[in-house]
Structure formats: structure tokens, C-alpha cells
């Protein structure tokens, strides 16, 4: 197996935030007592006047951010994804999405790779909770470099948005030149037997699984879909038309996430057999990040076996 560098997505976020802060004086950053973890502390140190630590008050933080946006600022809000999208969901719905306030929510600690803190902190429902809101866009980058591209692009775009990042270091699969467009997926590997669509760390898992499956004569097309909403239905449909089979993998509940978004699209445009792979309507548990990824069969070996099972059972 290939060797990968592992880097923090949140480090990329902290770095881009500084860069954007220099470029755009209207950017203000809010955090709820997790600025060290989310890496917004670096922005706070550089631009203390434009950084607001709201304490452990996520609901207040979301509505305050909406107020800053109404008055012409460009707020970027961070906390863990469970508290952002769970605790403060209704504030996001009313004050940000319904009011169309120009607030960017960049939340860390999504998925089971939160690790040892366990189920209470492993957010597995955030894509669903954010995707269902009108005016809200949902993104999740796959590695350090894609995080930079996504955060830059999202901060420069107008309107509410949610970006999910992780706690754990993720394998580096892209480089500094990596491009991201809102509403665009990327075919990372061409194939003809099956389309495998990933988001976040499962993109890495699918790329490695595809290499292994190739050795067994199975040709997998791997698509990275960091833009969950708006979804790149065209790219996905084109691939489905070619392979006739779609597999999705995500560090999220099988209900309401990327797999659901793909299924909703394909069911109405070009129905094919699908398998939605993710966390199967259960909560997470404590353990080491990569151990948990394997436990939930989202590591390269896990997704490979799932794909084989899908091909076998049809």
C-alpha cells in the first residue's frame, strides 16, 4: 500500500482564515470556547478586534453572527459540528437560513474520527440537518489541501454555508494546486464497472480500494463530491450511465447524507442500483480515530469489502 502524509484539515482552515482575514477586512470570526481546537485562535491572535469568543453559548453565537452579517460583516463561525448543527439548529434555521444572512459555519469534529470522546461528540447527522434547510449549502473537504480550496471559495461566495471538517489528521491526497468549485464533483479515477462516490476521508478509502479492486479485475470510477449541496448531479449521472451501479461512502448516517442526496438525484433522473454505505442508523463509540474508521468499515479495506458485497448481491 502507498504511503500517505497525514495532516489536519483544521490546520488548513486556520491558515486560510488568516489569509482571508488579511484580504477581506469585513471578515469577523466567532467561536464558542473551542478556538484552540477549531484553530480560529490564530485569527483571534492576529485580528483581536474582529474575533469574538462567545463562550459556551452556541445558540447565541449563531444569532449574533446573523446580526453581524445584517450589518454588513462577513462572519465565519466555528465550533464542533455537533454543537453547531445540533445545539444551534433552530438558530441556524431562523436567524441564518430563513433570514438569508451571509454567515459561514465552519465546524470541526464531524464523524466518527473524533475518536476517544465517543458518541456524544461524533456528529453523524450534520449533512442531513443542514441539507434540509432552504438557502443552506453543505460542503465537506477530503484532505488538507481541499480544505484550503473549499474554505477560500466558500468565504468568497455570498450566502449561508456549512463546511464540515474533522478532528483527526486525514491522509493527504491532493496538493496545493487542487481546485474546488461550488456544485462540482471530480472524477478522480476512471472506471467502468461501478461508480464510487465519497466525501471527506472516504475519498481516500475509495481511491485505495479502487487500486486493490483493479488487481482483481474490477474497474471502479471514483468520484469526490465535496459539494453535497448543491450536488453535481450531472457528473454523477454521467458516471452512472456508464457503470450502471453507484456506491456511496460517508462518515455520516446512511440517512440524509451524501448517499441520500445522490439517491434523490438518480431516482429522478437515471435510476440505477445503489448502495449507501455509512453509519447504519446507530451512534458512534469511543476508540482511536482510524480504529473506528475500520470498525465502521469506512477504511480502504472496509469499503472494498462493501463494494465486493454490493457487486456480488447486486
Amino acid at each position: 500500500m502507498r504511503e500517505f502524509d497525514f495532516k489536519h484539515l483544521r490546520d488548513a482552515y486556520g491558515e486560510v482564515l488568516l489569509e482571508m482575514g488579511e484580504k477581506y477586512p469585513d471578515i469577523v470570526v466567532l467561536d464558542a470556547d473551542l478556538s484552540g481546537s477549531t484553530r480560529t485562535a490564530r485569527f483571534g491572535a492576529r485580528f483581536p478586534e474582529r474575533f469574538f469568543n462567545m463562550g459556551v453559548s452556541e445558540q447565541d453565537m449563531m444569532s449574533t453572527a446573523a446580526g453581524l452579517a445584517l450589518a454588513g460583516k462577513r462572519p465565519v463561525v466555528s465550533t464542533f459540528s455537533i454543537f453547531a448543527t445540533g445545539r444551534a439548529w433552530e438558530q441556524i434555521r431562523q436567524s441564518i437560513a430563513y433570514a438569508k444572512a451571509n454567515v459561514k459555519i465552519v465546524a470541526t469534529h464531524g464523524g466518527v474520527t473524533v475518536g476517544e470522546d465517543g458518541a456524544t461528540h461524533q456528529m453523524l447527522e450534520d449533512f442531513a440537518l443542514m441539507r434540509v434547510l432552504p438557502n443552506m449549502r453543505v460542503f465537506c473537504p477530503a484532505d488538507y489541501y481541499e480544505t484550503k480550496a473549499v474554505v477560500r471559495r466558500v468565504i468568497e461566495s455570498e450566502g449561508p454555508a456549512y463546511v464540515r471538517l474533522s478532528r483527526a489528521k486525514f491522509p493527504v491526497i491532493f496538493n496545493e494546486d487542487h481546485q474546488f468549485e461550488i456544485g462540482k464533483a471530480q472524477v478522480l479515477r476512471k472506471g467502468k464497472d461501478l461508480t464510487a462516490i465519497g466525501v471527506g476521508i472516504t475519498v481516500y478509502s475509495l481511491l485505495l480500494a479502487a487500486e486493490e479492486l483493479q488487481k482483481e479485475g474490477i474497474s471502479v470510477e471514483v468520484i469526490n463530491s465535496p459539494s453535497i449541496k448543491p450536488l453535481d448531479g450531472e457528473t454523477i449521472e454521467a458516471s452512472a450511465r456508464k457503470t450502471g451501479r453507484v456506491f456511496t461512502a460517508e462518515e455520516h448516517s446512511v440517512i440524509g447524507g451524501l448517499g441520500s442526496a445522490v439517491a434523490e438525484y438518480l431516482a429522478q433522473h437515471y435510476p440505477v442500483k445503489m448502495r449507501i454505505h455509512g453509519i447504519k442508523d446507530i451512534f458512534g463509540r469511543s476508540g482511536q480515530a482510524m480504529e473506528l474508521l475500520a470498525y465502521f468499515r469506512l477504511d480502504p479495506r472496509g469499503v472494498k469489502e462493501e463494494i465486493l458485497d454490493f457487486l456480488e448481491r447486486g
Binding site: 445558540q59 446573523a66 438558530q91 436567524s95
Partner: peptide, 19 residues
């Protein structure tokens, strides 16, 4: 501001005041 779900308006007002 769009309001109606109670409790959010004071936070929003704070945000405007901060700006």
C-alpha cells in the same frame, strides 16, 4: 430581521451592535 422564534432577537441585536 426575520424573527418569531422567541429568544433570538437579542443575540441578533448584539451582532448588529458589535458591527
Amino acid at each position: 430581521m426575520s424573527t418569531g422564534s422567541l429568544g433570538q432577537g437579542l443575540s441578533v441585536a448584539n451582532g448588529v451592535a458589535l458591527a
